[in-house]
């Protein structure tokens, strides 16, 4: 079964509970610990319906991932929702031209609603 959501988040504990919560709703979720891992995943796997993207990550951060993703015609159409504690999240979301953003700490219901909207 192919993944519906790709979660890109470097924090292990947050990643675990988010994957669990999404799977509880029947949403198959894969994960990557940084932008570089996410790019490798996209190159080797069927495209997900949605990418949940953290901003502050080692190796390749969220903004760098977004540049790489948009440069590749195979993945540039996948919707992206930013997931961050950044104080200027709205501005960054606009600058990176993502589809939506969720501010940490994330509310479970809000997360589900957003994911459902893009994975229907």
């Amino acid at each position: 079964m192919s993944s519906v959501v790709l979660l890109v988040e470097d924090d292990l504990a947050l990643r675990e509970v988010m994957v669990e919560a999404l799977q509880m709703e029947g949403i198959v979720t894969s994960f990557a610990a940084n932008g570089a891992e996410a790019m490798s995943y996209l190159r080797c796997s069927p495209p997900p319906k949605l990418i949940l993207l953290d901003l502050m990550m080692p190796v390749m951060d969220g903004a760098q991932f977004r540049v790489a993703q948009r440069a590749d015609p195979s993945f540039c159409g996948i919707p992206v929702v930013l997931l961050s504690a950044d104080r200027e999240l709205a501005d960054k979301a606009w600058a990176l031209q993502v589809d939506a953003w969720l501010r940490k700490p994330v509310d479970l219901e809000e997360l589900m609603e957003t994911v459902r909207r893009y994975t229907r």
């Binding site: 504690a85 940490k104 700490p105």
Partner: peptide, 20 residues
Amino acid sequence: SIASHELRTPLSTLQLQLQV
């Protein structure tokens, strides 16, 4: 900005664990 990120990340996990 960094403090916000550092504090909100564990709070996210905490909140989601309790909500789950």
